[in-house]
């Protein structure tokens, strides 16, 4: 078994939205970033993975098993953080610990309380008394403290301050270090993925528009910001996407070396994931 999660040709139709032909692989030891604007289908895909919704076509395999046939023991190997769903806000972290002990055989109470101490989270306050960031920290702990093999994280760094974001990203990087664990992570804070992701999957209007390894992206992709007049000189077969933005034209190159050979005088910069997403969604 090479992949902890494998989604093949997933389709789900709603009256006003369709998820089409989604293919994602989350291999062992890898962090896969799932990027898209709001309403692009990220959460629907996560819901399908977690068997919260039925899908019309395709298959989802977790640890090589159909996701609809996972046993409780299989599910103990998965850690989940959902953006908009958690325990009732009237519980405190000690209550949550007792509940998690009931739900997971492997629940590591010691690790949980160590992290609570490290993150300076008060034990007797209820969730509703915490800030969004504090609550998110507790959600992260609930996802990792039963020592799962696969993490499915929906916007995990949302509402976190930069310092804690780095701490959390560090936890995620260490999590996959054993080459057995893996993470599927959705976020709109693309700079996080720049730091930790091995593979990036861009989704727009229910379809995957780009699935690429971070290494290939760094090696082959480039961005040109120039005037329309200069851009017009470039043969369209040498670039991937073009977008007029303010008084400049942005050009996304998907084969930098080929482009450089043909047009050595253009300045190519490394695109941010945000710029790539913008060009993939709005570019032509």
């Amino acid at each position: 078994m090479k992949d902890n999660l494998e989604i093949t040709n997933l389709e789900k139709k709603y009256a006003d939205f369709t998820l089409k032909n989604i293919n994602i692989k989350v291999s062992k030891g890898k962090i896969v970033g799932f990027i898209g604007q709001n309403g692009s289908g990220k959460t629907t895909t996560i819901k399908a993975i977690l068997n919260l919704i039925n899908y019309d076509q395709g298959s989802i395999k977790i640890f090589s098993k159909n996701n609809q046939k996972l046993t409780s023991l299989d599910k103990e190997q998965i850690g989940v953080l959902l953006d908009d769903s958690f325990f009732s806000p009237i519980l405190n972290v000690k209550d949550i610990n007792k509940l998690m002990k009931c739900f997971y055989h492997n629940w590591n109470e010691e690790l949980y309380f160590d992290y609570l101490k490290k993150f300076k989270i008060p034990l007797n306050k209820t969730l509703k008394e915490f800030s969004g960031g504090m609550k998110r920290k507790i959600q992260v702990l609930c996802a990792i403290c039963h020592e799962p093999k696969l993490l499915i994280l929906d916007e995990p760094t949302n509402s976190l301050d930069p310092i804690f974001r780095y701490e959390i990203l560090d936890i995620f990087t260490n999590f996959v270090r054993n080459k057995e664990n893996s993470i599927l992570i959705t976020t709109h804070i693309t700079s996080d993925l720049d730091l930790i992701a091995d593979q990036l999957v861009f989704i727009d209007e229910g379809q995957i528009v780009l699935d690429i390894s971070k290494d290939t992206l760094d090696k082959d992709y480039g961005l040109i910001k120039d005037t329309q007049k200069n851009i017009d000189l470039i043969d369209p077969s040498y670039y991937f996407k073009k977008l007029k933005y303010k008084n400049k034209t942005l050009l996304l190159i998907n084969n930098v070396s080929k482009f450089n050979n043909k047009y050595p005088n253009f300045t190519i910069i490394k695109p941010s994931l945000e710029e790539i997403m913008l060009l993939l969604v709005k570019g032509e």
Partner: peptide, 18 residues
């Protein structure tokens, strides 16, 4: 009501619960 306000069922179903 408390479950619905926190949308807890979604989270509970991601745990080893049926």
């Amino acid at each position: 009501s408390y479950d619905e306000n926190a949308d807890s069922n979604k989270y509970l179903l991601s745990l080893p619960l049926t």
